[in-house]
Amino acid sequence: MTTGFKTNPFERESFVYIRHLDLGELRAMLPPDALADIDDPDDLFVVAGADGERLAIVEGRDAAFAAARANDLSPLSVH
């Protein structure tokens, strides 16, 4: 027996992915002086759309999740 969905849950919500960035990856994508004002560059996370587009780089995992939710997005962790 199968049960059909009345609505597609993926149409109702916008998902974004939260992923830790390592320092080598950061240096490849940012200008050399971009990390000068960051307290802990090892604690940076990317917020990316479902298509992989980088939407933001945020200091701290909790802050990345909070930023997504503040913009009515549903964050998912990627390891």
Rank of each mutant, 00 (worst) to 15 (best):
Gly4Lys: 14
Ala48Phe: 00
Val46Cys: 12
Phe15Glu: 09
His20Ala: 15
Asp51Pro: 04
Val47Gly: 04
Ser74Pro: 00
Gly60Ala: 05
Arg61Trp: 02
Ala70Ser: 15
Glu13Met: 09
Tyr17Met: 08
Asp39Lys: 15
Pro41Gly: 02
Ala66Tyr: 02
Phe65Glu: 11
Ile18Asn: 03
Val47His: 01
Asp62Val: 11
Leu73Trp: 13
Ile18Gln: 03
Gly52Pro: 09
Ser14Asn: 12
Asn71Gly: 04
Arg69Met: 13
Ser74Arg: 13
Leu21Gln: 14
Ile38Gly: 00
Leu21Met: 15
Thr2Ser: 10
Ala34Gly: 02
Ser77Val: 07
Ala48Trp: 00
Ile57Tyr: 06
Val47Cys: 14
Gly60Cys: 05
Val78Asp: 08
Ala64Glu: 06
Ala56Phe: 07
Glu25Cys: 07
Asp22Glu: 14
Ala28Asn: 12
Ser14Glu: 14
His79Pro: 12
Ala36His: 12
Ile38Ser: 00
His20Val: 03
Tyr17Asn: 11
Phe10Thr: 07
Glu59Leu: 10
Val58Gly: 01
Leu21Ile: 06
Pro9Gly: 09
Leu35Ser: 04
Ser14Trp: 01
Ala66Met: 11
Leu76Trp: 00
Val78Gly: 01
Asp37Cys: 05
Leu21Asn: 11
Leu76Asn: 04
Ala66Gly: 07
Leu26Tyr: 05
Asp37Met: 09
Leu44Gly: 01
Ala34Val: 00
Val58Thr: 13
Leu73Ala: 08
Val58Asn: 01
Val47Tyr: 01
Phe5Arg: 15
Asp39Asn: 10
Thr3Tyr: 11
Pro9Ala: 10
Val16Ser: 03
Leu23Ser: 03
Asp37Phe: 08
Lys6Met: 10
Leu73Thr: 00
Arg27Trp: 03
Phe45Ile: 01
Asp39Gly: 14
Ala68Thr: 05
Ala63Gly: 05
Pro32Lys: 09
Arg69Lys: 11
Leu30Val: 12
His79Asp: 12
Phe65Tyr: 12
Leu26Lys: 05
Ala63Pro: 09
Asp33Arg: 14
His79Ile: 04
Arg61Gln: 10
Arg54Phe: 15
Leu44Phe: 04
Lys6Ala: 12
